[in-house]
């Protein structure tokens, strides 16, 4: 089973490398960072069905770090929400898949994102609707760490804690890097877990590339009764491609043909 997830992640990474190489789009390292989290969600945790993408009871996933859309697209395609061939239309003239997550561009994609700090509030709104409608679905919101510098994230966090929204789960892709450098140096997020705890959230931490561990942790949500849950997933920006890992350049640059081949080789998908 674990091997299966690893294979899916490997294939997702290879596809998104090809997408970025073909289109020249930015943020490949952000997508590689969040790939394992999305694989764990789409292939185990989320109660979603490609046959019924608008089912009322489906779990919702919001990729609040919308710039990692290529990872989301590869996972949705792999899960069967749309044909893999559509991935070739990522960030090209006249294509159907934009650089940031956009509602209605493909089935299964719930919310348009791209500007940071928006997803958690929208997730809170969905969680409130679920409570009102007495539906059992959960709302998962994937945030970046740099995103937690946005004040709106904490407005939403305070609200969810106050209202004891146990049907919302935030997952932080904590790769410790942001657009211009290390988060620790730009605007330190620590102590991150304590911040969320103090806002009334139940916090867990895990390795963000250990799919088995992510699944194991997210199997039991909420983490505490009457509390929203947050999983701080420790990740590596550019994970899987040695020359991209923890290198700021790959927040912007897309691989040329040679680099793409070398990256695919490292992943084992050449």
């Amino acid at each position: 089973m674990v091997k299966k997830y690893k294979e899916i992640a490997k294939s997702a990474r290879s596809r998104l490398i090809k997408m970025h190489a073909a289109s020249g789009a930015s943020h490949i390292a952000s997508s590689l960072s969040v790939t394992d989290i999305l694989v764990a969600l789409y292939f185990n945790i989320l109660r979603v069905s490609p046959e019924k993408p608008k089912d009322k009871n489906r779990d919702r996933l919001i990729l609040s770090k919308g710039h990692a859309a290529s990872a989301l697209f590869t996972c949705l395609a792999a899960r069967g929400f749309f044909p893999q061939t559509l991935l070739e239309e990522y960030c090209i003239d006249g294509g159907r898949l934009p650089g940031h997550a956009s509602i209605n561009c493909v089935p299964g994609l719930e919310v348009s994102t791209g500007s940071l700090g928006h997803g958690l509030s929208i997730g809170v709104g969905m969680a409130l609707a679920a409570k009102y409608d007495r539906e059992k679905y959960r709302v998962f919101v994937v945030l970046s760490d740099g995103e937690c510098q946005e004040g709106a994230v904490w407005e939403a966090a305070m609200f969810a804690g106050h209202h004891k929204l146990d049907n919302i789960i935030a997952i932080i892709d904590y790769n410790k890097m942001q657009a211009l450098g290390k988060s620790k140096e730009i605007l330190n997020l620590e102590p991150l877990a304590k911040k969320w705890q103090s806002f009334g959230w139940a916090v867990k931490e895990t390795g963000g590339h250990d799919i088995e561990a992510i699944i194991k942790t997210l199997k039991k949500v909420p983490f505490a009764k009457n509390k929203p849950s947050v999983l701080i997933a420790h990740t590596t920006k550019g994970k899987g491609v040695s020359f991209m890992e923890n290198k700021l350049l790959w927040h912007y640059k897309s691989p040329d043909r040679e680099q793409a081949e070398s990256a695919l080789g490292e992943i084992g998908c050449l």
């Binding site: 969680a127 609707a129 009102y132 004040g151 305070m158």
Partner: peptide, 21 residues
């Protein structure tokens, strides 16, 4: 009453509207 947090209010409004409200 969302509290003194209009950005959050607008986001929550969007989330509710996406859920048919």
């Amino acid at each position: 009453n969302i509290g003194v947090a209009e950005a959050n209010m607008a986001g929550i409004a969007a989330g509710l509207a996406l859920s048919g409200k």
